[in-house]
Nucleic acid binder design. Structure first.
Lengths: 111, 111
DNA sequence: CTGCATCCTCGCCGATACTG
DNA sequence: CAGTATCGGCGAGGATGCAG
């Protein structure tokens, strides 16, 4: 008895944890976002500065998805100007270790 | 002195091993393909049978990409009818361990 | 500073038919 | 059995502008 893909029947993508995990970190900018947040909490604009090339729109969208998936926490200080700090949840921390192993693999892969 | 995303300058996607690894396993069917091949070598049609919903076109394309990226080996027996066996390279085997950790994480995540 | 609303492009992927 | 060829939809993501 293996992992039973035959049992996934119809919706393979939904049914299998691997596909689900891939979907969660699969967004174009999610890898780098999680990786940065694994080091420290970061504010929105600082995050934008740390990720050259990302647009405000995409940063917002990807953060919202990560928040919905329970990977990222959002802490709002209701001041003027507003101040929003993003950080990883516990699940996000665990996920970041997988990304770390991907970095190790990628570095070896690239010789 | 962290991991230095600030040093990625222009093309973040190309420069960072995490993004590269994500790109390699990011195809819609690559996760399940690698996962199946981590158990045993499989022929083309058997693979197609094991992945409900995939088309011949996509199976071919994804296998070609995985082959190009050095994840999958292709062994052709030049007989009639033809017989093609797919298996993982050593790099593919290492990569499959990361997928395994993603399965573990995904299962916990889903409770 | 931190967002949301629109519009538009581009390439991944699906459906289908054909081949050695 | 193991592919290739062609057509087309659809959605992720980019550019830009406005708002609290």
């Amino acid at each position: 008895m293996g992992k039973g893909y035959g049992d996934c029947s119809l919706e393979v993508t939904r049914a299998c944890p691997i596909e689900m995990t891939l979907h969660i970190i699969g967004g174009k900018w999610k890898g780098i976002i999680i990786d940065i947040l694994s080091e420290k909490s970061v504010r929105f604009n600082e995050l934008k500065r740390l990720i050259p090339g990302i647009t405000q729109r995409m940063l917002t969208l990807q953060l919202r998805e990560l928040e919905t998936d329970g990977i990222v926490k959002r802490k709002v200080e209701d001041t003027v100007p507003p101040k929003v700090e993003y950080s990883l949840t516990d699940q996000g921390e665990n996920l970041s270790r997988i990304l770390e192993s991907m970095r190790v693999w990628g570095n070896k892969y690239y010789k």
